[in-house]
Nucleic acid binder design. Structure first.
Length: 377
DNA sequence: AACACGGGGCT
DNA sequence: AGCCCAGTGTT
């Protein structure tokens, strides 16, 4: 019985290997005719490939386009990136999300300049040592910029391979990803590995799509795709469901003094690390409670206005926010709200301070005129 | 293996 | 409202 199982497994392995090896020809032909024109495809310089791949981590192509072009214009060389000021770097990344990526590209730029003479390493294992470069990005850089036959397995590739092989294994498990990487490393073409990897992802992004109907009619792989043949494309891939988001309630204060507004720098660890924000606290505070706190710091007239409620959704949590604009004069030092805050003009925020999207909506209230009807003593 | 880490677009 | 995206790092 054990022997029969082994024989069966071996037959299945060979079948899978045969299918994977037959992918390259139709895939490369399709890619030649259907590759999208994208900014980072103008040329495959390692610096460009690296930056685009990092930006594309968990981020849609459409969102990355403008960021990539602006970033490469501002920092045309890896030397320029290695030397840029942290706030200026985050300002270039503002709104793109996963800000540790920005910190990591700068760390890597420094290493490449100092340890590699400014030239990116080409092989997979060296790339894997660099901050912010994992198995996917190492494979993408090595194959696309240096033509090394190593796989670049992202969510698209996992979905496509899962369907082509009609595999019911859970693609969210790391062991499955590792297995797909190993199988592709053994079967992918030695010629044009960069085009092969990009073609696999491009099929996933434009044909073998995750939501809605996969376009199997126009897929170059439809004749050899087991899920298509078996009619189970919509049932694949299998994934374990995600944990529900936790909800956090916050009160945001837009504190105005003259033409300036109070902001502060966030902690260097955790969510939105190192970005700037309006002072805020846990929980919903009433107008009275805010006023009480604000009175401790302001010696004279105070006006306050409640703002519209807002909600910001992250991957793993939701911020439900209420906000107030508060006009203050004559500040006392070292009060609790304004601890770590400093006052800046709106124009400075726009050009200098990176503000996460969750707080961006409150910037429009900086210039609000507070009427006398809201005056409180 | 599980979790933290952004933001946005599509169904 | 849920899904998921050209994933990586930490625990």
């Amino acid at each position: 019985m054990e022997i029969e199982d082994n024989v069966e497994a071996s037959v299945k392995d060979k079948e899978e290997k045969r299918i994977l090896k037959s992918l390259a020809e139709p895939l490369l032909a399709w890619y030649d005719a259907n590759a999208r024109i994208l900014p980072w495809r103008e040329n495959a310089a390692p610096y460009r490939v690296w930056m685009s791949e990092v930006m594309l981590q968990q981020t849609r192509v459409e969102a990355v386009k403008s960021y990539f072009e602006r970033f490469m214009k501002a920092l045309p060389t890896i030397q320029a990136l290695a030397e840029i000021d942290d706030d200026a770097l985050l300002k270039l990344w503002e709104g793109l999300g996963y800000y540790s990526r920005a910190r990591n590209v700068k760390k890597t730029a420094k290493i490449v300049v100092e340890q590699y003479g400014g030239e990116f390493p080409s092989n997979y294992d060296d790339l894997m040592e660099l901050p912010g470069i994992g198995s996917y990005t190492a494979g993408a850089i090595s194959s696309i910029a240096f033509a090394n036959p190593v796989p670049a397995v992202d969510g698209n590739v996992l979905r496509v391979i899962s369907r082509v092989l009609a595999s019911k294994e859970d693609i969210t498990s790391q062991s499955v990803k590792k297995k797909v990487e190993d199988e592709l490393r053994a079967t992918m073409p030695q010629l044009k590995p960069g085009a092969f990897n990009q073609a696999l992802m491009e099929i996933g992004a434009t044909v073998c799509v995750p939501n809605g109907m996969a376009k199997c009619e126009i897929c170059p792989l439809n004749q050899l795709c087991k899920a298509n043949i078996l009619g189970i494309v919509m049932d694949l891939p299998k994934k374990t469901p995600k944990k529900p988001r936790t909800i956090e309630e916050k009160t945001i204060l837009v504190i105005k003094s003259g033409d300036k507004v109070a902001i502060r720098k966030r902690c260097s660890k955790g969510i939105l690390a190192g970005l700037y924000e309006f002072p805020n606290m846990e929980g919903y505070l009433s107008e009275k409670e805010v006023l009480y706190l604000v009175k401790q710091m302001s010696l004279s007239a105070i006006r306050i206005l409640k703002l519209e409620d807002s909600k910001h959704i992250f991957t793993h949590k939701e911020w439900h926010m209420i906000g107030y604009v508060v006009k203050v004069e004559e500040l006392e030092q070292n009060n609790s709200i304004l601890k770590d805050c400093f006052f800046v003009e709106p124009a400075e925020i726009e050009e200098r301070y990176p503000i996460p999207t969750a707080f961006q909506r409150y910037t429009k209230y900086i210039n609000i005129i507070l009427g006398n009807d809201k005056f409180k003593d």
